[in-house]
Write a protein that binds this DNA or RNA. Structure first.
Lengths: 140, 140
DNA sequence: TTGCGTGCAAAGGTTTTGCATGGCA
DNA sequence: TGCCATGCAAAACCTTTGCACGCAA
C-alpha cells in the first residue's frame, strides 16, 4: 500500500533549533555540517544524525529544500517560506564565492512556460540551480 | 609558479576503453561506477581508481564534463565532442526516469544573455542542469 | 630506460542505519 | 504509558591518496 500511516510529530528542542537556524540563514544554502557547527557555536549542540533526520522531515513537509551543491561532496539545505511563493523563482549560485541569489524575474517565469510548450518538459525549479559566476567574482 | 610542467600522455588500453565507453553513451550521464560496470560487462575490466583518474584528465582536456546529479551521491560524466558546440545548449534531466535531454534552442541562448545583462551573472551551462519531469513521465 | 599509468588497499568525507535511551503528549 | 526523537557507534557509499609494479615511448 502506498498509504503511509500518519506519524505524529513531536516538538523538541533540537528540531526547533534546527529550523530556527535554517530560517535565520534562509538567504544561504547550508550543509548539514554547517548547521551542526552553527548550533554548536550557540551552545545548542545537536547530533549530526538528528540534523539529517530532521532535515529529511522538513523536506517532506515542504519547508526545506535540498540542493546538490557545486562540489558535490555534500548536499545543501535551505529554508523556504511556504507562504512566499518561492516556487516562482530560480536560484543562481556562484561557483567562485558560493553566494546564492534568488531571481525574481518575469523573463524566467516565461522560461518555464517556453520549455513546457516547446519541449514538453516541466521544469521543477525546486531542484534547479543555475551555476555560474557572479558580478563581483567576474571582476577579478 | 602557476606553470605546471607539461606531462606526456600515454596511450593505454584502459584509457581508450573508458573514452570509448563515454563516446558510445554520449547521450547519457554516466557515473564512474556505471562506466566501471559497463566495461566489466564487456570483459574490459578497469580499476575504479583508473576510471577516476582518467576522467580527471579527460575533464582537463575538455572532452568530458562533470555534472552533479540529482541524487547527489555521485557525480556524472558525459563526453562532449569538442567540435560540436556543446557549450551552446542546456541540459534537461528528468527526475523520474533519469533521461537526459540536450536542448538546442535560441530562446535558451537568450536566457544566458538576459541573465548576464539584467542580473550580471555569467551562467555556466557546463555545470547547469535543469531538473524536471519529461513528457512521458508526466503522462502517468 | 624513463616516467606516466594502473590497481590494490587504505584513508577521508558524507550520509544512513541499528540500537538503547530520552522525552513529548 | 506509548511512541517518536535523539545520539553514539558502526556501516555504507563515493572519491582520493600512497605505493609498488606495469608498460608505453
Amino acid at each position: 500500500m502506498e498509504k503511509k500511516k500518519e506519524q505524529k510529530i513531536y516538538k523538541t528542542r533540537q528540531r526547533s533549533q534546527i529550523l530556527n537556524c535554517l530560517i535565520e540563514n534562509s538567504s544561504k544554502h547550508l550543509t548539514a555540517d554547517e548547521i551542526s557547527v552553527i548550533l554548536k557555536e550557540k551552545n545548542c549542540e545537536v547530533g549530526k544524525t538528528t540534523v539529517y533526520r530532521s532535515l529529511e522531515k522538513l523536506i517532506k513537509e515542504g519547508s526545506v529544500r535540498k540542493y546538490i551543491c557545486e562540489e558535490g561532496r555534500s548536499a545543501c539545505f535551505q529554508y523556504v517560506d511556504g507562504n512566499k511563493n518561492c516556487h516562482q523563482h530560480f536560484h543562481l549560485k556562484c561557483i567562485e564565492c558560493g553566494k546564492l541569489m534568488h531571481l525574481e524575474c518575469d523573463y524566467l517565469s516565461d522560461l518555464e512556460k517556453h520549455i513546457f510548450e516547446h519541449h514538453k518538459f516541466i521544469v521543477d525549479n525546486t531542484k534547479t540551480v543555475l551555476y555560474g559566476v557572479c558580478e563581483e567574482c567576474s571582476n577579478e
